[in-house]
Design a protein around this nucleic acid. Structure first.
Length: 676
DNA sequence: TTGCGATCCATTTTT
DNA sequence: TGGATCGCAA
């Protein structure tokens, strides 16, 4: 076994002998190294790797830990790292005697919204009286479940947060409308039961409910594990806490986290799970890691400054073990094209002049479509990249179209998939599909459905042909997918026109992915919980390659790079303009977000800004009313001069035409977003 | 009833 | 920009 080089604090955590431990670890202090070493330590001390469960809120961090342990210890085979969701799914599937959900399929987030939309279509009174859309109902429900809060509170925070009402008016509104939320949510719960669906939250919730009320079952499940190692503990929410709570009698918890990096508040993350650990968990200790091994001191100075400006006390001063380096750079641009072009040049220069590799570079963005321009430029210049975060393949229409056929065969009660599938075909619209679904609602198998369907006149014979062809392929998802695509090809190409050529390229990839699953059900649920990302990410599938990483900040946690560019740190973006009015909790979450971004860089940190947005926020160009509102919350106000090397590269390759005499739009950070 | 075209509209982060 | 929605013709 490779020996780990651990400092005294890390070593103490890794070799902790008590029952439960919370490790408070600042950015770059070797959090991952510590949790990896802990797993390795346990295994090399005779713990069966299958009795250790590694958990994280995001897929990436869970996967990375396992990979690193396995690379180091051959005997770590069988060690599993999962997200909370996929772990729970596995527990449910593998214990059918405890969890009565065989044949249930997963209801993803957009389908959740579809269900609420359907219910509101039926329950017109609730729709009209509240005037609330399906998506908001879904958010309220999710808030209640994930934060385990009262319905009224969820309504207040989700629905009324931005309404200009007094507290008394809000309470009044809630009193008048709460009953509609109650009925709609109950209808939603019934719907899932009737159509054999589990939503993301159910995966955790059902386990909590069932094991919580059945001590024998709880013991049965919990006794399968000795150690549960939780990464990114600050991102866990009360629902996840309740889940972990089931295991604290029988297992050892080893959690690592950093309150200053908590950026999943919108998913109910609650860093009290970190702060109150010792009070909540009997027989527990808390340890701290404070020495930063990742970055040079200049990079930490900026990060420390940012977090010190927060009204929240993080009690955190990162110290660099590595010592001094170069000052971070603050570079200004006229547009995102200049910004992207400059970054591309900078990377190419680094590669040709100073023997850097593409993998030494990472670009971070607050939003996923904030990297669009960059991707275009990288492609033009031949810079290879992988992308984290953003659009999933699963979310694109053509993929959902084909998967709807597979979903039907996996669960004939899946009305949403029937709807989607039927409406694809020529001559079948809303009315006809509702009629068809009504006709098959008592069918228990796909055979029954097809028999009924034979009695109905349908224009396109492939409507049934597709289902007929794949109905016996449950044990060969890859083949089923291939056959389904074959049958649906003509219809889809007519439907998508010019886009079809591009879209059709996704299917071979998906068919390949499906090969590693033995049933359609398994493939579908795993693909939902661990979705393959879009084409950019596909390139990352091959063995380690020398490529630049582009990532949203949310997906970048745990990542690091020699040189790190943080895009567009401009007023209105940090914090995001639309979040400013939501109050200081949101603003502070945005601050932590920027903090995560800044602390990814090892040697060189480059922060870019939009020059016009700075000028607008100062009111130095245009009229007074061009001045951006609320710029006093901008995190880089009062930025001390000495923290950054400031640069204004010439943006000269855009010709200026000053003949225009109309009004000016103050600032457009991304497409079509303004403040009017 | 379906399906097309026009128009409107809102834009974060992840499982 | 592109998704959702609406109105209208076939």
């Amino acid at each position: 076994m490779d020996t780990f080089i651990l400092n005294a604090q890390q070593k103490a955590a890794v070799e902790y002998n008590g029952k439960h431990l919370m490790v408070l670890a600042g950015a770059g202090t070797g959090k991952t190294r510590t949790i990896v070493a802990r797993a390795a330590y346990l295994i090399s001390h005779g713990i069966d790797p299958r009795r250790i469960q590694i958990l994280s809120f995001t897929r990436k961090s869970a996967g990375e830990i396992v990979e690193r342990v396995k690379a180091m210890l051959p005997e770590a085979k069988g060690l599993d790292g999962s997200t909370f969701h996929s772990w729970c799914y596995r527990i449910i599937r593998s214990n059918p005697k405890i969890f009565p959900f065989s044949n249930f399929t997963i209801l993803d987030e957009s389908e959740q919204e579809d269900v609420f939309r359907f219910i509101l279509g039926q329950n017109r009174e609730a729709a009209e009286r509240t005037g609330i859309k399906a998506g908001i109902f879904k958010d309220v429900y999710s808030k209640v479940i994930n934060t385990r809060c009262a319905l009224s509170l969820a309504i207040k925070e989700v629905v009324l947060a931005e309404e200009r009402m007094t507290d008394a008016q809000k309470d009044e509104w809630i009193r008048n409308n709460k009953k509609y939320f109650e009925t709609v949510i109950n209808q939603y719960i019934d719907y899932k039961q009737l159509h054999k669906r589990l939503d993301y939250d159910d995966l955790l919730l059902q386990i909590i409910n069932i094991l919580g009320s059945n001590p024998d079952a709880k013991k049965h499940i919990a006794s399968k594990y000795d150690h549960i190692l939780v990464d990114e503990m600050q991102d866990t929410n009360p629902l996840q806490w309740d889940l972990l709570n089931l295991f604290i009698d029988d297992c050892h918890l080893f959690c690592v986290g950093d309150d200053a990096q908590s950026i999943y508040g919108f998913r109910g993350a609650d860093f009290r799970n970190v702060h109150s650990f010792k009070e909540r968990v009997p027989d527990s200790s808390v340890m701290k890691l404070e020495d930063n091994y990742r970055s040079t001191q200049e990079i930490l100075d900026v990060s420390n400054w940012l977090i010190a400006k927060s009204p929240l006390k993080y009690d955190k001063q990162l110290r660099s073990v590595r010592g001094a380096g170069n000052k971070p750079e603050l570079v200004h641009f006229n547009s995102e094209w200049h910004e992207a072009g400059w970054i591309a040049d900078d990377i190419i220069k680094g590669i040709t002049d100073s023997e850097k590799s593409y993998r030494d570079y990472m670009v971070l963005s607050r939003t996923s479509n904030g990297t669009r321009t960059l991707q275009t430029i990288f492609t033009e210049r031949g810079i290879p990249y992988q992308i984290f975060g953003g659009m999933r393949l699963l979310e694109s229409a053509h993929i959902r179209d084909v998967l709807s056929a597979l979903k039907i065969t996996a669960n004939v009660k899946d009305e949403l998939s029937w709807m989607r599938y039927l409406k694809l075909w020529q001559g079948i619209g809303n009315k006809t599909s509702v009629k068809i679904i009504e006709g098959i609602k008592d069918c228990m198998t796909i055979e029954d459905c097809l028999t009924v369907l034979k009695g109905i006149k349908i224009k396109d014979s492939d409507t049934m042909g597709t289902l007929d062809a794949i109905k016996d392929m449950n044990n060969n998802p890859s083949k089923a997918l291939e056959v389904a695509v074959g049958h649906m090809k003509n219809m889809l190409s007519a439907r998508y026109g010019d886009d079809w050529e591009r879209k059709s390229k996704d299917f071979p990839v998906l068919i390949k992915v499906a090969e590693s699953y033995s049933t359609i059900t398994e493939f579908l649920s795993d693909f939902t919980l661990n979705p393959v990302l879009d084409e950019g990410n596909m390139m990352a599938d091959d063995s380690p390659r020398d490529i630049v990483t582009i990532s949203t900040i949310h997906s970048a946690k745990g990542l690091e790079a020699d040189t790190c560019y943080v895009l567009n740190v401009s007023p209105g973006v940090y914090p995001m303009a639309r979040n400013i009015s939501k109050g200081s909790d949101e603003i502070e979450e945005e601050r932590r977000c920027l903090y995560v971004a800044l602390t990814r860089a090892k040697n060189r940190l480059v922060v870019t800004r939009n020059i016009r947005s700075i000028q607008c926020s100062n009111g130095t160009i245009g009229q007074e009313d061009n001045k951006m509102p609320n710029n006093d919350t901008y995190f880089f106000n009062e930025l001390p001069d000495n923290l950054f090397e400031t640069e204004y590269p010439k943006n000269e390759f855009i010709e200026q035409d000053n003949s225009y005499a109309g009004g000016m739009t103050p600032w457009i950070p991304a497409f079509g977003f303004d403040f009017n």
